[in-house]
Design a protein around this nucleic acid. Sequence first.
DNA 1: ATAATTCCTGTAGTCACTATAGGTTCAAGC
DNA 2: GCTTGAACCTATAGTGACTACAGGAATTAT
Lengths: 144, 144
Amino acid sequence: MERVFSIGKLATASGSKVETIRYYESIGLLPEPERNAGNQRRYTARHYDRLTFILHARDLGLSTEAVRQLIDLSQHPDMPCRDADEIARRQLDDVRQRIARLKLLEAELERTLSSCSHGTIAECKVIEALAQCGACERHHRPPR
Amino acid sequence: MERVFSIGKLATASGSKVETIRYYESIGLLPEPERNAGNQRRYTARHYDRLTFILHARDLGLSTEAVRQLIDLSQHPDMPCRDADEIARRQLDDVRQRIARLKLLEAELERTLSSCSHGTIAECKVIEALAQCGACERHHRPPR
DNA sequence: ATAATTCCTGTAGTCACTATAGGTTCAAGC
DNA sequence: GCTTGAACCTATAGTGACTACAGGAATTAT
């Protein structure tokens, strides 16, 4: 007598949304659940576990593709875990790069804002700063 | 006689792509340029300036909508610059939140990886960590 | 029994591009 | 002047990861 529950309950229990759950099913991340007599989805604890796995991985910034790989891996329990490790490691590199980049942006925005003269738009440093180059990394040159 | 140049030159000069330039025109961020006899776009320095403005703002993480607002603002030079300032300030808040969030993820991924036993998938801490809660902020409860 | 809520499918919309197809125009070399 | 290849044109579809809607059917609450 396994406890089953509706898609709405699964959504609130997991902190996600009904539409998101159906979406994960549609792209094959969540297995299709049983249906009741009225064609409504009935989920079990296994679905809940799989869903929280997906949600946690997504929260950590993994793509659905990476999640799919991890799920595939986890279904071959006797493989070496190097592959799963590798996925997490790549993700960590990525997160660190995003942090570094955002810190540059933060500094640039701070600089931009601190120089705001609170005059009119014509002398607004925010717009000026964006029109010029500042600490920009984009490799471009004015067309002379 | 104003120097004019093709979409390809504008792309390389600005460090963007031909398709992106046409896209910005299509959503009304870049004004429609003149065309030559053969219907090809001919750009001037003013287009280059506008484009770098857009690209810098996008690099800083502003949405195209925010860029649109800034452009609108810059066309009313006698308005107070408070509005432009406000847009940049909101963006700074946002950047700081993203940094804070990513740092949590970084710590979580580090924790996850440092405990990897390099055994088989069955005992892989990466997958285990994602299946459980850890430092997760998602407010959910298992369905008992 | 009726009303309100939840569920169903299918489709379209979002954001900010990117890619493709099928054609036209331009620029360089001969 | 001609040919060839690169660059350009429009229009449409695809991406990722959902979100929103329309129009119904089922369930739950009163």
